[in-house]
Nucleic acid binder design. Structure first.
Lengths: 111, 111
DNA sequence: TACACGTGCAACCTTTTGGTTGCATAATTC
DNA sequence: GAATTATGCAACCAAAAGGTTGCACGTGTA
């Protein structure tokens, strides 16, 4: 069962974890305190995120610090690129249309 | 069971459907031809995508054309924004570091 | 060395997911 | 009006997801 980044971010708890550790690395215990679920459930999510290379762990003594692998988020951005092209094109077309309408309006006034 | 956009794009088939109808609206039958699964399975995916407002349907006679609701994709882009800030900041810091190293190198040469 | 702490893993359970087949319904065509 | 076509929906099923509890194991600390 190989998961990808899109399945990784599908779960709301996992998105919350990502947001939580985005700015500073945290231990599983510290992360779990922010949620209603058990520490083990959070641990499972961390395992999934690790498998997908969304997060990375660093052992410090008996504690493990998890931190976001920001480059993985870029993959989503790259996938989104194909749609960004579409909505930007639409905006351009809309701009063109608006410009044309404005031009027409001006021409009307001159009459 | 209310789904969100992230669950909508979690499934690879659904992402393929989105890509397929991104440029032009298509009927369920036409879409289903691109996949190994049954027409009904595709129909289910279309229902999920519709529920999440990722796609929109337009009836034409007995055919239904599904087309992408591109604005919904922007929601993902907006969510990604918080991480884009992070990776762009990292790049800036890297640029600064590289500039400093280059400066140091130049200073060494002058000696 | 004994004990507490931080963590991951296994077993188990319920709900959700994604697929299938069969059928109902509405629009078109003969 | 009868047959065909396009589609959605319900029932069913296997697999996966997400949660829980209990336990094992390494690392610090008294």
């Amino acid at each position: 069962m190989k998961r990808d980044i899109f399945q990784a971010i599908a779960d709301p708890t996992r998105r919350a974890i990502i947001a939580l550790i985005a700015l500073q690395a945290m231990t599983p215990n510290a992360i779990a305190e922010h949620f209603d679920t058990s520490r083990q459930a959070v641990s499972k999510h961390l395992r999934i995120l690790t498998e997908c290379d969304v997060i990375r762990q660093e052992q410090k003594g008996r504690e493990i610090y998890y931190q976001l692998e920001i480059d993985k988020m870029k993959e989503i951005d790259e996938w989104l690129e194909q749609y960004r092209i579409i909505w930007e094109t639409r905006y351009e077309q809309l701009d063109t249309l608006l410009a044309e309408l404005k031009q027409q309006e001006n021409n009307e006034r001159k009459k």
